[in-house]
Amino acid sequence: MIVVTGAAGFIGSNIVRMLNQQGRTDIIAVDDLSDGHKMFNLADLQIADYFDKDDFLEMVKSNQHFTDVEVMFHQGACSATTEWDGKYMMKNNYEYSKDLLAFCQNHRIPFIYASSASVYGGSEQFHESLEVEKPLNVYAYSKFQFDQYVRRIETPTAQIVGLRYFNVFGPFEQHKGSMASVAFHFNNQILDKGVCNLFEGDEEYGHGEQLRDFVYVEDVAKVNLWFWKNQAVSGIYNCGTGKARSFNDVANAVISYHGKGEINYIPFPEHLKGAYQNYTQADLGNLRKAGHTEEFTSLESAVAAYLAKLNA
């Protein structure tokens, strides 16, 4: 069996889809379907069983061992960077992850989990080192603290891999609403009014020139599966393209796909000031040293592939 938590979510459902494409259907899907719309991400996929995340946690805590679990892809989390309920965030993201990790260590199961590039926060360096990790919100803090917890495990019984996702975009993110990628929102804006709305700049960045490492979700799923196939490798690794691109670049790629549209710049929101990353770019040095050599899809190619599916 393969366990995927957050299986009805954005990255989790893409991992399940890729596993199906490789002929694997013996998958235990774990999620919270309080928002029933997420079921559409799993509706055309093959799984062996589904468990609510709270029920699954109770099974784990009672030390119920699922037969022959090969790997756990732990993608489930509250990923809203605008959520400031720290008690909820730490219980849902940090404590839950610790319980699953303990289960996997007890049963020698490889554990590959979703960390986040948000742990770098206010930093302008993006390599996997404590001195450059500066979370700016409680979501980032929950991911940061779990990474520190993992780092303190001196003699793991099985593979532990944390993947620091940068700005992931692609199919099956529509349920994320305001937290969906800018490519998703730009596509909708072009279809609605023919205009992409981007934030104005400041004294450091021009209008729409804030830079992010935008990575296609299919590449992210491939990285997860690569680590599973290379179980001698453990650690915390960046998962991005290694190339920073501007929001203008994303908007222009969307406009190019549709063959119409223009860019409009809007004032930077007050509630995001001081809690917003203007620049991210994954340092892939450690990922490459670990043996992962596959190139990531270019922004333009990824946007075109995504929109072709989104607008089909």
Rank of each mutant, 00 (worst) to 15 (best):
S298A: 11
A312M: 05
F184A: 09
I160W: 08
Y120V: 14
F214L: 06
L130P: 12
D219R: 07
N278K: 11
S115Y: 10
P267A: 07
M1C: 02
Q174P: 02
A312G: 13
A140F: 05
F103S: 03
V217W: 04
F172S: 08
A77N: 10
L130W: 14
L57Y: 00
T157N: 11
A158Y: 05
L42E: 01
N188G: 10
R151H: 14
G122P: 07
G23H: 07
H74W: 10
K193V: 07
F199M: 09
S97R: 14
S129T: 14
V303T: 07
E124C: 05
Y205D: 12
A180P: 14
N63V: 01
Q148S: 12
Y120E: 11
F247W: 12
K289D: 15
I27V: 08
K91D: 15
V71L: 04
E203L: 06
I160H: 11
N264W: 02
E204R: 09
N167K: 13
L287F: 07
C196K: 06
D249F: 09
L310M: 15
G6T: 02
V161Q: 07
L42A: 01
Q64N: 03
G235N: 04
Y96P: 08
E173W: 10
K91H: 15
S115Q: 08
Y149D: 03
G291T: 12
Y113S: 01
L211C: 12
E262L: 11
E262I: 12
R151W: 15
K243W: 03
I112C: 04
S256L: 10
Q125P: 02
L101C: 15
W84P: 01
F172T: 01
D202I: 10
N14A: 07
N248P: 10
N197S: 13
N41M: 08
S13N: 06
Q22E: 12
E200Y: 05
D99T: 01
Q277H: 13
A102Q: 11
I27K: 00
L191K: 14
D192G: 04
N264L: 07
F51M: 01
D32N: 05
V182Q: 09
L101V: 03
Y216A: 04
G206D: 12
Y50C: 01
S116E: 14
N92P: 05
V168M: 08
N92M: 12
E200C: 05
E295I: 07
G9I: 00
H271P: 05
G206S: 06
D213F: 03
F172Y: 13
S246W: 12
V254A: 06
K143G: 04
F227V: 05
E133S: 13
L287W: 03
Y96I: 05
G291Q: 09
T25Y: 04
M39Q: 13
P267G: 11
V195S: 04
G285A: 05
V132S: 14
H292T: 01
I2F: 11
A77F: 08
F199A: 03
I255L: 14
R212F: 09
E204Y: 11
E270L: 10
D202A: 04
G23D: 02
K260P: 03
M90Q: 09
A48M: 00
C104F: 00
A275E: 03
A183T: 12
Y279I: 01
Q46W: 02
Q21E: 11
K229I: 02
R288Q: 07
Y139V: 14
P135F: 06
